[in-house]
Design a binder for these strands. Sequence first.
DNA 1: CTATTGTTCTAATTTCACTAGCACAACCGA
DNA 2: TCGGTTGTGCTAGTGAAATTAGAACAATAG
Lengths: 117, 117
Amino acid sequence: MLIRVDPGSGVAIYDQIAASVRAAATRGALSPGERLPAARELAEALDVNVHTVLRAYQDLRDEGLVDLRRGRGAVVTDAAARGASLLDAVRALVAEARREDVGPQTLISLIREEYPA
Amino acid sequence: MLIRVDPGSGVAIYDQIAASVRAAATRGALSPGERLPAARELAEALDVNVHTVLRAYQDLRDEGLVDLRRGRGAVVTDAAARGASLLDAVRALVAEARREDVGPQTLISLIREEYPA
DNA sequence: CTATTGTTCTAATTTCACTAGCACAACCGA
DNA sequence: TCGGTTGTGCTAGTGAAATTAGAACAATAG
């Protein structure tokens, strides 16, 4: 399964699902035009409520990463494929952060502060 | 004020406070030995409860970024100064992400997925 | 000694994630 | 056309976590 979830992770389940899809798309494991599992189907596979999956899908739609339509499902958009070139930079950044004993919280805090402007 | 908060940001207030401090320390705006505002004082300035500020301070203590002691307050540790070399890399990464129209959610998702392993 | 500051405690309120079940509308394939 | 699939929308309830509030207490600085 492409998508995994850890209930006691502190991160909301719908956020973990969305994060999995974002990462998979960037990684190229999900190509534009491809369809995500049906919400009901994925919900059962993850032993989670349908609404929780839908919440993740709708967040992804709001970000423009998927196209949601009744009967058709959640289709990955072209936008989701962008940023593949960021992967190496991200890996390098994380590696350096760990080398300097900088936690993920700090790294994420830095990114959130650099973005808005 | 070094620390700002947006109540409707989706991010918990105590997390925003902690994030501000993490970023400020990494940026060098907060040097080791320096003291954070007293909890009661900051709480009033942000129009927030004292416990909320304390929660942020305690999280920072758990991460080793500040030293908490009664009567003395929250003092920035040496550990908080680490990672200054990451700043450029973070800025470059964010810049490239925006150039490619990649949102902050995706960037953060990527980092969270690269960390644990 | 006195004022400051974090610590601890109880308690109430509020917000949000998650679950549950249902009806409905758009879409697809046969 | 028809039947099954899929997201949408709604109401409702539960539980955990965030936030607020107020108080007493212990360590520290001056």
